[in-house]
Simulated assay, not measured.
Amino acid sequence: MLLIQLSDSHLKADPAGLYRDVDVQARLSAMLASVSRHQPDLVVFSGDVSDDGSIASYQRVAKQLDALGCPWVWLPGNHDHPATMADVRPLKTVIHLDGWQIILLDSWIDGEEGGRLGEEQLARLETQLADDASPALIVLHHPPVTVDAAWMNEIGLEDRETFWARLDRYDHVHAVLCGHIHHEMTCLHDNVPVMSVPAIAAQFVPDSPDFAVDSHAPGGFRLVRLSIDEAQRPRLSTRVEYLLSKV
């Protein structure tokens, strides 16, 4: 099974609206053309779909994702408006495909840049993992780890320690995907790979102590291949593909 992760398009109601001098609608269209050539089995959009939370921006994205001809899901980032997203396409919490469970978490906090899962959602996560022993991939917007950019850590996932404490009880979580940081990152936390994806919109400088945009860095998406081999062992492989055009 091929899953493709997209993140952080920051669209506006106006299709011509820019995000930090990037034509994000043109960038998204070019990105989805590349995604389509891979014929994914599932597309997961890990937040900040919109920059202004407008229904027009969500409707445009949904129309373009529908045109891929494969299942797709999205989850909210800090710039999104979850209720408006759900009016266009319901927010799912878990997807089952080819023996894997893809668990979608909502780290949105009204009016804040940082994220939080909260006790109720963490309890649901633990129940899901306790009741379903199939290999799991978790997706959320805010990174559940510290990153090299100090300013970004101030707006990361507040309850990440509690998140990892819950996961520590289960050994069938094989990776965590996130967005928010606007660049590619891979690290290990308690032997679980944590991976971010480049933004569709402008990229941030990975190791800057203060907010900084890399105006030359291309956007991209992550390809994740999930399978279970003949010995019933889960297999995961992944890579990032960059959009090298000047869009």
Score class of each variant (00 low, 15 high):
residue 41 D to Q: 12
residue 40 P to K: 05
residue 12 K to R: 15
residue 43 V to C: 09
residue 15 P to Y: 12
residue 61 V to N: 04
residue 62 A to M: 03
residue 57 S to P: 02
residue 26 A to P: 11
residue 29 S to M: 02
residue 79 H to M: 06
residue 83 A to P: 01
residue 81 H to I: 00
residue 81 H to Q: 10
residue 26 A to F: 03
residue 26 A to W: 01
residue 18 L to E: 13
residue 42 L to Q: 13
residue 82 P to H: 05
residue 23 D to M: 01
residue 54 S to E: 14
residue 57 S to D: 14
residue 30 A to N: 00
residue 65 L to R: 02
residue 46 S to T: 15
residue 73 V to R: 06
residue 8 D to H: 09
residue 18 L to P: 02
residue 57 S to Q: 08
residue 21 D to N: 13
residue 74 W to G: 02
residue 22 V to Y: 02
residue 79 H to S: 11
residue 49 V to A: 06
residue 8 D to I: 01
residue 82 P to A: 03
residue 25 Q to G: 00
residue 67 A to W: 07
residue 63 K to T: 08
residue 30 A to Q: 13
residue 40 P to L: 12
residue 37 R to I: 09
residue 15 P to M: 09
residue 63 K to S: 13
residue 35 V to Y: 09
residue 21 D to A: 13
residue 75 L to Q: 00
residue 50 S to E: 14
residue 79 H to W: 03
residue 58 Y to F: 10
residue 16 A to F: 06
residue 7 S to C: 01
residue 13 A to K: 15
residue 59 Q to S: 15
residue 12 K to E: 11
residue 43 V to L: 09
residue 38 H to R: 14
residue 60 R to D: 10
residue 48 D to G: 15
residue 31 M to L: 11
residue 27 R to Y: 01
residue 7 S to A: 14
residue 55 I to V: 14
residue 74 W to Q: 05
residue 48 D to K: 07
residue 25 Q to D: 15
residue 9 S to R: 00
residue 80 D to N: 09
residue 13 A to P: 09
residue 24 V to F: 00
residue 54 S to P: 04
residue 41 D to Y: 01
residue 42 L to F: 11
residue 27 R to S: 12
residue 27 R to I: 03
